[in-house]
Design a protein around this nucleic acid. Structure first.
Lengths: 106, 106
DNA sequence: CGGTATCCAGGTCGATACTG
DNA sequence: CAGTATCGACCTGGATACCG
């Protein structure tokens, strides 16, 4: 957790969802529960290591929940926590803003 | 502009406001027009070089406007563009979310 | 299947010095 | 006052190989 987050809640929120991949992961998890392999396919171009890192970070921050089944072969599912679900409105707002922004050319 | 922004408007929006300093700069500019030196004092800890870089990036993306006066000593003011103003709701939403998040300890 | 371990490349940020 | 220039440190992310 960065130092500035203490004084700037905006930076706090942002720190939880920023980065090259987190929004893409969240976008997919907003659709519902997903397995590790599913995420790796839907978040195109991400490596195993980085997907693991990002999911661990989201989990540590209470945004996603990890459910491991004791099976052979192993199965692990990820889903948004209630905290994560509550980001839905913000992500939607950013999506809409981004779509408008795109239409003004650039 | 990153490649994924083409397919993910959320990532597009995020790319414009993320980073260690941009939210802090935007937070201050939401209050109104500011001079370079004012920003450097209110965004505590930022170096001249980085503040310049960040402002240039925000300007290039149409979020802030730069007004230089041909005076001695020089005077430069920065203010949000209409596009930048339209981020207000999103930044507010993130601030509120962050405040709630903080209260759940962590 | 769902990870770790290792090593490396690129970019961002910081410190410092200098300038119109 | 409001920058630019230079150099170096750190950190994120990428490639690849291996593991329970």
């Amino acid at each position: 957790m960065k130092d500035q987050n203490i004084i700037c809640p905006v930076a706090l929120t942002l720190s939880l969802i920023e980065g090259k991949w987190k929004t893409l992961i969240l976008r997919d998890l907003l659709e519902g529960k997903k397995r590790f392999g599913e995420l790796q396919r839907s978040v195109e171009g991400i490596s195993q290591k980085v997907l693991t890192t990002q999911l661990r970070a989201l989990e540590a921050n209470g945004i996603v929940e990890r459910i491991a089944y004791a099976e052979i072969p192993p199965r692990v599912e990820y889903q948004l926590s209630p905290q994560g679900q509550s980001l839905h409105a913000i992500i939607d707002a950013m999506r809409i803003w981004g779509e408008n922004y795109q239409m003004l050319d650039k």
